[in-house]
Design a protein around this nucleic acid. Structure first.
Length: 342
DNA sequence: ATCTACACCTGACCGC
DNA sequence: TGCGGTCAGGTGTAGA
């Protein structure tokens, strides 16, 4: 299941190979992957064809591709700036972005054209002038593959943002004519804990203004983004917090430790997931090696809590229903708060 | 207004 | 062997 670290691995792979490439033919094999593109498949294909990729950005689990403005628009913008039209000027971008969400099972693969189609291949963008492993330019397919079709692609207008939402994103220029921009569809997403401009004061305000439990808030992408069910359980285990502890009862110190736990667990996953894209293949299916080796809570029901084991105790991790899904915790380290049903 | 419930999907797995 | 039921779970929205 792709959460923030997996999406960032994809972003880095795409940035390395696709920036500077030009979009050729666009093929949509399954329009359900364009569910969120309300203008329809032909519009999607027509607007992308011919654009040159300027950058790849990410916030939380959302990923998006920025394009250089097409030549005639570029010339208009340059004229209004009273400057020389320079096609290499990355400030001059198309006014929409290609937004990608991997959902539960989405992958973005980069393959050389003749390779056989993947089983659940939904959308293919032919790229000219992509960058191969040896740094040379070559044609490449960007393939969106998605078994369960919870993810998808769509075009979303770029809009100006202000305040901390307007600080630059890591690893990607998002500025057009000096204005910070973000796709409309992503504007409600909070900055993630690996973002240098993550707004911890705002997250704290959200904690104090709700009556819900802490895990629910961790999964709320408008409060803190990039955290899914797996990393929420891992972070709560590291911070020794019960998932149902009311967020407003958590101390400022414990809040800092929880945010730090989110950062650490996702950085660990990023370090391990980031090792696997030496081939011309952007690894994206959330089953990086991290899953097998390093999970301390998620999926560990019946196994000893390793922190308790080190302290000479034997507590077995438990799985409990949580909002129609599952939550994993140590019954000793993550005690149920008083007054909480479950 | 805020919160809950469900729809969207496919494949693996389990019990009969 | 097969077949129905359950689970996995991020997101947006309809409904309470």
């Amino acid at each position: 299941m792709p959460e923030l670290p997996e999406v960032e691995v994809v972003r880095r792979g795409l940035a390395a190979h696709c920036v500077g490439a030009r979009v050729g033919a666009v093929t949509v094999a399954d329009s359900r992957s364009l569910r969120r593109h309300t203008e329809g498949t032909p519009d999607f294909c027509a607007r992308l064809t011919g654009l040159r990729i300027a950058d790849i950005a990410r916030r939380g689990k959302y990923l998006w591709v920025l394009f250089h403005a097409q030549p005639h628009i570029h010339a208009q913008q340059a004229a209004s700036l009273n400057s020389v039209a320079d096609p290499a000027d990355t400030r001059l971008l198309e006014d929409f972005a290609l937004v990608i969400h991997l959902g539960m099972s989405g992958q973005v693969l980069l393959k050389e054209g003749p390779m056989p189609a993947e089983k659940h291949q939904k959308i293919v963008l032919k790229l000219e002038d992509a960058t191969d492993e040896s740094g040379h330019t070559s044609p490449l397919d960007m393939r969106f593959v998605d078994q369960r079709i919870f993810g998808g692609m769509f075009l979303s207008p770029l809009q100006a943002v202000t305040g901390t939402q307007g600080q630059p994103l890591p690893g990607a220029s998002m500025s057009v004519l000096g204005l910070p921009l973000i796709p409309e569809a992503v504007a409600h997403i909070a900055r993630d804990p690996l973002d240098p401009h993550f707004d911890s004061a705002d997250f704290r305000r959200r904690m104090l203004s709700t009556s819900t439990g802490i895990k629910k808030l961790l999964l709320d992408q408008s409060a803190i983004s990039g955290v899914g069910n797996i990393y929420a359980d891992e972070a709560l285990w590291r911070a020794k917090l019960h998932y149902a502890k009311p967020a407003r009862t958590i101390t400022p110190q414990a809040t800092r430790e929880l945010v730090k736990a989110c950062q650490e667990v996702m950085n660990d996953a990023l370090t391990q997931g980031g090792t696997s894209f030496d081939a011309l293949y952007v690894n994206v299916n959330g089953e990086s090696g991290y899953f097998d080796r390093s999970l301390k809570a998620y999926g560990q029901a019946g196994h000893p809590c390793c922190r308790c084991l080190e302290a000479g105790r034997t507590s077995l991790m438990v799985r409990e229903p949580f909002g129609g899904r599952s939550s994993y915790r140590c019954p000793y380290c993550q005690r149920k708060p008083r007054g909480v049903q479950r």
